[in-house]
């Protein structure tokens, strides 16, 4: 029986093989899945906001793209992963609601989360090898430690693997 680890909102988890790490009902938040294909160490962060610098309270580092990804990499290295081998897959960052005045900051948060995650990954030299981001629908995602595939389930937009 493969161990299934759940990641909540503003949370991050990592594990050695064999495991499945999942997060349910991802909306505007972005899911960042990291994987070391040699050591088969997998990690997943469920990120709410782009930057800890703009927040009044940044004690929970799993909440922000800039701090969560750095922490996830540290955790995975501690489990035996090699930073230079890590690859990233992204999912989420949707805009669940659209309003007539669709310009408000809160509504574009999904796109900003994705952009921030990419920037942080780029600065850490971790390549984003695939993504399923944007749109206006929620996603449940799971990363499998055997080959690093990221399975994505939706309502009305099918199921896929990236």
């Amino acid at each position: 029986m493969v161990k299934v680890i759940k990641v909540g909102m503003a949370d991050l988890q990592s594990s050695v093989h064999p495991c499945i790490i999942t997060t349910l009902g991802l909306g505007s938040c972005v899911g960042v899945a990291l994987y070391d294909p040699v050591k088969k160490v997998a990690g997943l962060a469920h990120i709410m906001l782009p930057s800890s610098q703009q927040a009044r309270n940044n004690s929970n580092i799993a909440k922000f793209a800039d701090t969560a990804i750095v922490k996830l990499v540290q955790d995975m290295v501690a489990l035996g992963a090699e930073k230079s081998r890590l690859v990233a897959k992204l999912a989420g960052g949707a805009q669940m609601f659209s309003f007539a005045d669709g310009t408000s900051e809160m509504l574009r948060i999904g796109a900003r989360n994705v952009a921030a995650a990419k920037e942080v990954l780029d600065s850490l030299r971790i390549p984003v090898i695939s993504e399923d981001t944007g749109g206006n629908y929620g996603r449940t995602i799971e990363i499998h430690s055997d080959d690093g595939r990221l399975k994505i389930k939706t309502i009305g937009h099918g199921t896929k693997e990236i």
Binding site: M9, G27, C29, M48, L49, R56, A94, F97, G138
Partner: peptide
């Protein structure tokens, strides 16, 4: 004006939560 989404409960309920992330946990 209202916005409408038909989707997973988690994805919908998380939308108003995001604003809280800036000020607390």
């Amino acid at each position: 004006v209202p916005g409408l989404a038909i989707d997973m409960a988690g994805a919908i309920l998380s939308v108003p939560a995001i604003e809280f992330g800036k000020v607390g946990d």
